[in-house]
Design a protein around this nucleic acid. Structure first.
Lengths: 199, 199
DNA sequence: CCATCTTCTTACCTTCAAGTAAGATTGCGG
DNA sequence: CCGCAATCTTACTTGAAGGTAAGAAGATGG
C-alpha cells in the first residue's frame, strides 16, 4: 500500500471499497469506470476488489444494494400509518428529496447509472413501479368524491417522472429541497382535480 | 457481401448504416454495441463504417443528429404563431408523443441511450433545457393574471420530466398517444392555478 | 517462537472490440 | 477497351480492462 494506512479488517475495507466505487461510478458511469480506477481511489490493489466482491458487476450490485437500503431508510418515516395521506405524501417527498440532496452520488448511481445498465435496468424499473403503485394508492385514498373515472396509475406515472426530474435538479444543487417539495406537493393535489376524458 | 445486394452510392449506404446503428444501439445500448454488430446488421463490412463515419463516437453522433432532426420536424407545426398558446401546447404534445410512438427506437437512442454517454449527455441536457425554457414561456404567456410570483421555470422542469416519463410508456406501447396528451395537457393547465409559497 | 489465518501486492494472462493496412471488385467516362 | 475512381472486403494490429496465480507480510493463539 503506497498509503500509510494499515491493514484493516474485512468489514471496514469493504465499506471503503464501496465508498470508492460509488464515487467513481457516479462520476464516470459504469462502463467508463475501470476496476483499476476504483482500486486506486480506494487506495488498495485490484485483486482485493475481486477477493471481496468477485466481479465488477457484483461490486456494482453491492453499491446498488447499500445505497438502496439507505434510500428506503430515508423514506421509512412516511410509512407511519397514523399519518393522514396528505401528510404521508409530504413526509415521503421530504424524505426523498432530502436524501437526494444529501447524497447526490447515491442518487446518481442508484438511478441514473443503473438505468443505463442492461443488467440493472430491470430492478430499477420494478422499484419505480412499486413507487408508482404506492403513489397511485395514496392519491386514490385521498380523493373522496366518487369522481370522473380518474386513472390514478397514469397520474402517478407522470408525477413520479416529475419527481425524478426535480430530484436531478435538487441533486445538482439548483433547487432547494423545500421549494421542490412544495412544487411536487401542489402538483400532486392539483393533478387530482377531476380530469375530463378524451376532450 | 454475403447478401445479394449490389454496390450502392455512398449517400444510400450511409442511410442504411444509420438505420442499422439506430437499431442496434436502441436494442443493446452504446457500450454493448460493437461496430461488428452494426456492420453485420447493415450487411456490410466494418471498414465501411470507418470509411464513412470515422469512429464509433462519430457514428453515434450521426445517429443523434439524424434522429434529432426528425424529432424537431415533428414538432414544427406547433411553432405556428397564429395558434393560441393552448393550441400550441396541444400541438406540441401531439407532435412529441406521436413521434415517440411512431419511432420508439429514435426516442430510445436520442434520449435514453444518449443520456448514458458522457460525451453526449451535455447536448441532450441542453436540448432539454431549451424545451423547458419554451414550456416556461408558453405557460407564462397563457396565464393573464399578474399573479402570485409563479416560478414557471420550476413548473416547466416538473412538466417536462412528467412528459419524458409518459413518453417512455408511450414508446413501450403501454399508453395511447391521445390518453397521454390529455393527461399532460390537463396537468399543465392545472399546475398553473396559483401556487402558495413555502407552505 | 512456530503455525497459521487473514490481509494485501506484484506481475501476469486473456479476451474483446476499436481501429487499420492493403488490396480486390465493379462500373463509368473517354 | 482501358484507366481510374468509388465501393467494398479479408485479415490484421493494438490497447484497454476484466480477471487470476502465486506468494509476501503482519497479526494471533498455542
Amino acid at each position: 500500500m503506497a498509503d500509510g494506512t494499515k491493514r484493516l479488517p474485512r468489514a471496514v475495507r469493504e465499506q471503503q471499497m464501496l465508498d470508492a466505487a460509488v464515487d467513481v461510478f457516479s462520476e464516470r458511469g459504469f462502463h467508463e469506470t475501470s476496476m483499476d480506477a476504483i482500486a486506486a481511489r480506494a487506495k488498495i490493489s485490484k485483486p482485493m476488489l475481486y477477493l471481496y466482491y468477485g466481479s465488477k458487476d457484483e461490486l456494482f450490485a453491492a453499491c446498488i444494494r447499500r445505497e438502496g437500503l439507505r434510500f428506503v431508510e430515508a423514506l421509512a418515516p412516511a410509512g407511519d400509518p397514523s399519518l393522514a395521506p396528505r401528510e404521508q405524501l409530504r413526509c415521503a417527498l421530504e424524505g426523498f428529496l432530502g436524501f437526494v440532496s444529501a447524497h447526490r452520488k447515491s442518487w446518481m448511481v442508484l438511478y441514473r447509472q443503473a438505468m443505463g445498465q442492461q443488467a440493472f435496468v430491470g430492478s430499477v424499473k420494478s422499484s419505480r413501479d412499486r413507487l408508482i403503485e404506492l403513489t397511485a394508492r395514496l392519491l386514490e385514498s385521498s380523493t373522496r368524491d366518487p369522481d370522473t373515472g380518474q386513472d390514478f396509475e397514469l397520474i402517478a406515472i407522470a408525477l413520479v417522472g416529475a419527481g425524478e426530474a426535480v430530484a436531478d435538479r435538487v441533486a445538482g444543487g439548483e433547487i432547494e429541497v423545500a421549494t421542490a417539495a412544495d412544487l411536487l406537493e401542489s402538483l400532486a393535489w392539483r393533478g387530482l382535480a377531476g380530469k375530463k376524458k378524451s376532450e
